[in-house]
């Protein structure tokens, strides 16, 4: 079974690396934001630079998770290759696990350019253990967005999935304080911020990398979003199965 999961993961990773536009798109914008805003303005402040690096790494990863997964899943459903795979002697697990693992790999890859800019051009500092913990926080934080990507991908046709996932992505990124630190945001945004899952994910990363204490509300909301999105993704999966394969 594990060798089959590996085969599926390998093939999905190859597919994404050969046509790397998705990875580049996810990595490009946050890296440019780092260069344009963080390096010249807060690059000298170690704590601010570190949290900004964490936020923008998550920005790229979240884009890969939400936009990447929703478009991959919705396109899959439209290609006749997908029903063919179901005639092969494997249940849905290797395919699903391969999809999740390959997305995780891309999620991590798309965080690297920001990490490099942060490490080389700012005063951002981190211990090796802190970095590892930070990546752990990033993976935990990205889970609800992967589930959201699955939900959108199973619900909509690919063109609509692309548009909807982008529409979800930017407001959540801004509300969660990924582009600008929450304390400089307008008051109504600050009031809303703890309730979007991006805020909880960001606080988790800041906690892991700089020791900044997270607020309980944000973390609870992150857990709530993860649960709700898991239920929604499972529901959408069964709905799609029923339509195409019952």
């Amino acid at each position: 079974m594990s060798s089959l999961i590996l085969a599926h993961t390998r093939y999905l990773v190859i597919e994404q690396i050969r046509v790397p536009i998705g990875i580049l798109a996810s990595a490009f914008f946050p890296a440019v934001s780092m260069l344009a805003f963080v390096v010249p303005f807060t690059g000298q402040d170690a704590t601010a630079a570190t949290t900004a690096t964490g936020s923008l790494m998550f920005f790229g990863s979240m884009s890969s998770a939400l936009i990447g997964l929703s478009s991959a899943v919705s396109q899959d459903r439209e290609l006749p290759w997908n029903p063919y795979l179901r005639t092969l002697p494997a249940g849905p697990l290797p395919r699903f696990a391969g999809r999740v693992l390959s997305t995780l790999i891309v999620v991590l890859l798309s965080a690297i350019p920001v990490l490099l800019v942060g490490a080389l051009l700012t005063e951002a500092t981190i211990t090796p253990a802190g970095l590892l913990l930070g990546f752990g926080a990033l993976i935990v934080g990205v889970v609800p967005f992967m589930l959201m990507g699955l939900f959108v991908g199973f619900m909509l046709v690919s063109k609509a999935a692309m548009a909807v996932s982008q529409l979800l992505f930017f407001p959540m990124a801004i509300l969660g304080g990924l582009l600008l630190p929450p304390q400089v945001l307008p008051e109504f945004v600050q009031a809303l911020s703890p309730y979007v899952p991006t805020r909880g994910a960001a606080e988790l990363i800041w906690w892991a990398t700089t020791g900044l204490r997270p607020s309980a509300v944000s973390l609870v909301m992150l857990a709530v979003w993860t649960g709700v999105m898991a239920a929604a993704a499972i529901w959408a999966y069964h709905r799609d199965e029923g339509r195409r394969f019952s």
Binding site: R18, V19, P80, Y84
Partner: peptide
């Protein structure tokens, strides 16, 4: 089973 050739993964 034969897949439809239009759906083969292009980049592989």
């Amino acid at each position: 089973v034969t897949p439809q050739e239009t759906g083969l993964p292009e980049s592989l």
